[in-house]
């Protein structure tokens, strides 16, 4: 895929909704997609039915519909974040081993996950901060990382201390090696291809400013 790098210098940094909308617009029509818990769940708000995207949820469902409200709430019908959801026409249910065979077997086109850090090689860290008193909990993140054909991640580019979460090597415990293909952040979108990191577009800052704050070689599309 080829792009032309665009700098939106007058734009504000993207908020969570704007990031979710951007991801949704990039998901190919008619693809099978898994949205991770947390921020990626918002992506479904921007997937219109005409796109034909079919959502997979790790707890055994293809064809997941919007969040359930009112009388539609059924506690036997939840998503990976344990939020009540609805079923769309054509929904299928299956057990957990089948659900993860779909992932591991390479049948999902795209998964979208949050990230603590992503390295220039596409290594992903998103399941543990490695703190002494943190309780390790991985869920399906490692299975998604190796299984989906494309792994998109969403995060703010800079941590609270200003350091970049796009790094040369992840310092947090790894979820998967070389698995990330796109990084959506509040100030820039990155494409990882040909063993390099390309800036596709920026919001509120220039590529030069990104280069001054991100310790990874950033290429641009001409």
């Amino acid at each position: 895929m080829s792009f032309h790098t665009v700098e939106h210098l007058d734009a504000a940094p993207l908020n969570r909704d704007a990031m979710a909308k951007l991801v949704a617009e990039d998901i190919p029509a008619n693809s099978f997609v898994n949205l991770g818990i947390g921020q990626p769940t918002k992506v479904s708000d921007y997937l219109t039915p005409e796109r034909g995207v079919i959502l997979h949820t790790e707890n055994g469902m293809l064809g997941m519909g919007p969040q359930a409200v009112g009388d539609a709430i059924d506690l036997d019908l939840i998503n990976a974040g344990k939020i009540p959801v609805t079923e769309l026409p054509g929904t299928a249910y299956f057990h957990h081993a089948d659900s993860f065979a779909m992932m591991r077997g390479g049948h999902l086109d795209v998964c979208v996950m949050g990230a603590f850090q992503v390295s220039a090689q596409g290594d992903l860290a998103n399941w543990s901060t490695g703190g002494d008193d943190s309780i390790p909990a991985v869920g399906g993140a490692m299975d998604l990382a190796v299984g989906a054909k494309d792994v998109y991640t969403m995060m703010t580019l800079f941590a609270k201390d200003g350091s970049s979460k796009l790094v040369t090597e992840c310092t947090y415990p790894l979820t998967g090696l070389g698995c990330v293909s796109r990084i959506y952040t509040d100030v820039a979108t990155f494409i990882l291809e040909n063993d390099a990191v390309y800036v596709r577009e920026t919001f509120s800052m220039s590529v030069d400013e990104l280069r001054s704050r991100v310790p990874v070689e950033l290429l641009t599309y001409s």
Partner: peptide
């Protein structure tokens, strides 16, 4: 990892002595 948990249980019921998976490699 959740998929490994599910597959280990599946293997337990299916008489599979073990399996290789890419999940968690390098982590």
């Amino acid at each position: 990892p959740q998929g490994t948990l599910a597959e280990r249980i599946r293997a337990g019921g299916a008489g599979i002595a073990g399996f290789y998976t890419r999940t968690s490699a390098g982590t």
